[in-house]
Computed example of a mutant assay.
Amino acid sequence: MMAAEAGAARNTLLAYERDLDGASMLLEGRLGEASPEDLHRLAEAWLPLKRATVARKAAALRRFFGFLQDEGLRGDDPSAALPRPGSDRPLPKILDHAAVDALFREIERRKAEGGTAALRLSALVELLYGSGLRATELCSLPRNAVSPDRPFLILRGKGGRERLVPISDRARAAVAEWAAHVPRDSPHLFPSGKKHLSRVRLYQLIKALAADAGIPPERISPHVLRHAFATHLLEGGADLRAVQLLLGHADIATTQIYTHVDSRRLIELVNSRHPLADAGPTGARRAGRAAGRVDARRNPA
């Protein structure tokens, strides 16, 4: 059902399998007949786990018992006894504009020294920060995914969902420079041996670049550059729904976490743009000063 009807990705199916197997072992193979009391025992066994882990396990079991009831395999659904821990999702790590500028200065320095490694790194970072690609999406790009005359590419990302990703002129130029050095018979834009560049190797390349740029390596990763892409778009006034589509998030709640990383800017936005911003004491004083100026113009001394 999860594969055929829900269209779940392979990693999701594997996670469900692990969670259901684990729960079945704790209940000695009686998961399908579990009572609310059995599920309370499961919840007690999960107490040492993180809240996010418990939430994931409970969600898998709710889906399982819902399936059993829908298929007529049991007449009740005991999943109300499962815990519902609150979310403790941490805020994403981000880079400020100065750090991003330092990365690109270091890339330009390496390019000036010559060599294809710098061209590859330039293309990788331009796509990570300029388009918000996930590491896996980036590493496995087909050789002709980015076309010089097409300002976008179509990705099949997490969960098998397709999305259109705009590619900046800078990124297309960087990819074109690198692509000229990719073997013509390579199916991948970033080949490595018989396959493509691995996520681990990409991680290492970004860490080394950060160190040379004077940025603590622990502050950066390919995913941090994706976070910076989203955060800097929102800082620039981008619509949250547009950022959701660009990142390929199935749920806008996932994208909303980026609205928490710059609360100062959001507060300033409300204070300066809200229709009632001038209705308070400050607004009244401003209105009074404006009225005084009008009176002075009408009744000059």
Score class of each variant (00 low, 15 high):
277 A>T: 08
237 G>P: 09
38 D>T: 05
260 H>T: 10
54 V>I: 12
25 M>Y: 02
21 D>F: 06
287 A>G: 12
45 A>M: 11
50 K>F: 04
166 P>G: 13
231 T>N: 08
246 L>F: 03
231 T>E: 04
23 A>I: 00
199 R>L: 13
54 V>P: 12
20 L>C: 08
65 F>H: 00
281 P>H: 00
152 F>N: 15
224 V>W: 03
81 A>I: 01
43 A>E: 08
192 S>K: 05
199 R>H: 13
195 K>L: 13
184 R>P: 09
27 L>W: 03
287 A>F: 12
177 E>L: 11
180 A>C: 08
83 P>V: 04
5 E>S: 02
21 D>W: 07
86 G>I: 03
198 S>C: 07
144 N>M: 09
230 A>W: 07
209 L>V: 07
46 W>L: 03
44 E>M: 10
238 A>T: 05
144 N>W: 07
240 L>Y: 01
33 E>F: 02
174 A>T: 08
202 L>I: 09
79 S>K: 02
76 D>L: 02
122 S>H: 11
191 P>M: 02
289 R>N: 13
115 G>C: 14
124 L>N: 06
281 P>Q: 05
37 E>Q: 13
101 D>V: 06
193 G>E: 05
289 R>T: 13
293 R>G: 15
236 G>M: 11
81 A>L: 04
144 N>S: 12
269 L>V: 05
37 E>V: 12
259 T>G: 05
218 E>Y: 06
261 V>Y: 02
146 V>A: 14
138 L>M: 02
139 C>H: 03
203 Y>H: 15
71 E>T: 01
2 M>A: 10
291 A>H: 10
159 G>F: 09
170 R>I: 14
79 S>L: 02
206 I>E: 08
141 L>K: 00
119 L>I: 13
126 E>A: 08
140 S>L: 05
261 V>G: 08
289 R>P: 12
40 H>M: 09
262 D>E: 11
243 V>N: 06
221 S>Y: 04
269 L>E: 14
272 S>H: 09
95 L>C: 15
241 R>T: 07
